[in-house]
């Protein structure tokens, strides 16, 4: 941590999750949540910001993600090393169960954290990739709501792509 940041007093913000848990985050983390950026800049973020769509478990993870990104970017290391570091961190971070990925994806969309949204979407897409339809249904717990006739019709429509 550089000395200049120690001298100035750090601004902290309080974020309240759906289930009422309050998280204290530094400004460097809070500004990554685009959805509350205006509140912060307009100084309307007192006493705390309620985030109605995010549970505390997921918010905790999101904050860890933002913290790591904020620290790495301001850590004073060269850009290429920071990039590498973030890449390994992102890979590790995405190595969680798909339910969490889905929640993170929704949360990132709601909180408007572009990098996390892209990351989770790409990861989820890679989970769908190269899997059969039945595997995908099973993995994401999706019910097949096609009737036999419909499924036949859809299959026929897309047959050209699979030949």
């Amino acid at each position: 941590m550089s000395s200049s940041t120690e001298l100035t007093e750090k601004k902290v913000f309080l974020l309240k999750s759906l289930d009422g848990v309050i998280f204290e985050v530094e400004e460097s983390v809070a500004v990554q949540l685009e959805v509350i950026r205006e509140l912060i800049e307009g100084d309307c973020a007192r006493p705390f910001i309620s985030l109605y769509n995010v549970t505390s478990e997921i918010l905790a993870l999101v904050i860890e993600y933002c913290k790591h990104h904020a620290e790495t970017c301001s850590g004073g290391t060269s850009a290429t090393i920071a990039d590498e570091d973030l890449k390994t961190f992102d890979n590790e971070f995405m190595n969680v169960d798909e339910n969490i990925l889905l929640e993170l994806c929704s949360a990132a969309d709601y909180l408007d954290i572009k990098s996390l949204f892209e990351l989770t979407c790409r990861t989820l897409a890679s989970l769908i990739k190269d899997r059969t339809i039945i595997e995908v249904r099973k993995m994401f717990n999706v019910e097949n709501d096609f009737s036999v006739v419909e499924e036949k019709a859809v299959r026929k429509e897309f047959a050209w792509a699979f030949k």
């Binding site: 897409a125 769908i128 990739k129 995908v136 859809v154 299959r155």
Partner: peptide, 9 residues
């Protein structure tokens, strides 16, 4: 892959 997803539901 995208055509595959179209067949899910």
């Amino acid at each position: 892959d995208r055509y595959n997803t179209a067949l899910v539901c």
